[in-house]
Amino acid sequence: MRRPDDAGRTVVVFDVDGTLVDSERDGHRVAFDAAFAAAGLPYRWSVEAYGRLLDVTGGRRRIAVFLEEQEYEPEEASVLAAALHADKTARFRELVAQGRVPARPGVPELIADLQKAGVTLAVATTGTLAWVEPLLERLFGADTFAEVVTGTDVRTLKPDPAVYREVLARLGVGPEQALAVEDSANGLTAALDAGLPCVVVTNDYTRGQDFTGALAVFDGFNDPDAAALLRQSAPWR
């Protein structure tokens, strides 16, 4: 991956699910349901039900919490969740390979503009490396992001700030030199607790959440004010 030329350079750190890409409703949810069906389980997650489950970060943990709600014992839920999540990840990778997980409108243009401006780009996501890496390569190219830190790399997931702290450590920059871009209250909390200012760009699942503390909140990347703020080359304070 491309390394930043200068430790003092401005950094923009993006979340992936729901932020860079439209992936939750017609990507992960579909793959989860297919994994349930393949395992002979009767569960299917409606659009609305999946939206509620997104309060639990991390796909494996999301399945385990759901199974415990179905009265599985915690240990049994954990073992079954691991198997289901592995199958779901393989199915989601197929969706990625088929081009069925698109970037959000305005994101490719923003990424290109930030690159031209010399801004260092990074990723901090709770998603697993197995699908995050091929997705980013397909949509943005292999060398776009200086660092990609995923839920595979840290022990605790958002809203814990571990993934942001790891990105900063790898880049060798302080939080005052970086800006986070998130779509959810959990992501916002993680960024703020790591000391990063955070811009929130909502989607249909996260619109209406509490974004107290955000530097700004926008409905999409095509909002002219969002584009102008994110294209700034100076630190965001």
Results as ranks from 00 to 15, higher is better:
Val154Met: 10
Arg52Lys: 09
Ser184Gly: 10
Val56Leu: 06
Glu68Lys: 10
Leu53Gly: 07
Ala34Thr: 07
Gln232His: 10
Tyr50Gln: 01
Tyr50Leu: 02
Ala180His: 00
Leu215Cys: 04
Asp143Arg: 12
Asp55Asn: 09
Ser23Gly: 14
Val167Phe: 06
Val167Trp: 01
Glu137Ala: 10
Gln98Lys: 12
Pro224Ile: 03
Asn186Thr: 07
Asp87Phe: 05
Asp33Ile: 10
Phe221Met: 02
Arg91Thr: 09
Ala112Cys: 12
Leu54Lys: 10
Asn222Pro: 04
Ala234Trp: 09
Val201Gly: 03
Cys198Met: 03
Ala112Pro: 10
Ala130Ile: 03
Ala37Phe: 09
Leu188Thr: 04
Arg93Ile: 08
Val119Glu: 01
Val200Ala: 00
Leu230Trp: 04
Phe66Thr: 05
Gly99Lys: 04
Thr189Ser: 12
Ser184Asn: 08
Asp219His: 10
Ser46Phe: 04
Asn186Val: 02
Asp5Asn: 13
Phe221Tyr: 15
Arg2Ile: 11
Val173Gly: 03
Leu121Met: 06
Pro159Asn: 08
Arg2Gly: 11
Thr150Met: 03
Pro235Cys: 08
Arg25Phe: 08
Ala81Ser: 14
Phe36His: 05
Ala178His: 03
Glu137Phe: 07
Asp223Gly: 06
Lys88Trp: 11
Asp6Cys: 14
Glu48Asn: 08
Leu136Trp: 01
Arg62His: 12
Pro134Gly: 12
Pro235Met: 12
Thr150Asp: 07
Val107His: 01
Val65Pro: 00
Gly40Thr: 08
Gly195Cys: 08
Ala37Cys: 13
Trp236Gln: 05
Ala226Phe: 05
Ala146Ile: 03
Thr152Leu: 12
Ile63Leu: 09
Leu114Asn: 01
Val148Ile: 15
Phe211Cys: 01
Ala49Tyr: 05
Arg25Gly: 12
Ala191Thr: 06
Lys116Glu: 15
Val148Asn: 07
Ala112Ser: 13
Lys88Pro: 06
Ala49Arg: 15
Ala39Lys: 06
Leu188Arg: 02
Ala103His: 08
Cys198His: 01
Leu139Cys: 02
Thr10Leu: 15
Ala191Lys: 00
Asp113Gly: 11
Arg100Glu: 15
Asp17Pro: 01
His85Phe: 09
Ala214Asn: 14
Asp5His: 14
Gly127Pro: 05
Leu157Ala: 03
Gln232Pro: 13
Gly106Ile: 09
Arg29Ala: 05
Leu41Val: 07
Ala86Thr: 13
Gly118Arg: 11
Thr89Ile: 11
Ala77Ser: 11
Gly59Trp: 00
Gln232Lys: 12
Thr156Gly: 05
Gly208Val: 10
Gly18Lys: 11
Pro159Ile: 02
Ala86Pro: 00
Ala122Val: 11
Gly27Ile: 05
Asn203Arg: 03
Glu73Lys: 07
Ala162Arg: 04
Leu20Ala: 05
Ala117Arg: 15
Arg52Glu: 06
Ala97Asn: 13
Arg44Pro: 02
Arg44Val: 08
Gly151Met: 11
Leu135Met: 13
Ala34Tyr: 02
Val217Trp: 03
Glu68Cys: 09
Ala83Gln: 15
Val173Ser: 06
Asp15Glu: 11
Asp210Gln: 05
Pro235His: 07
Asn203Lys: 06
Leu135His: 03
Val173Leu: 04
Trp45Pro: 08
Arg93Phe: 07
Ser184Gln: 07
Leu135Asn: 05
Ala162Lys: 05
Thr212Val: 09
Ala142Gly: 08
Arg104Asp: 06
Leu54Tyr: 00
Pro175Val: 02
Leu188Lys: 01
Ala82Ser: 14
Ala190Ser: 15
Asp6Lys: 11
Val47Ala: 14
Val79Arg: 15
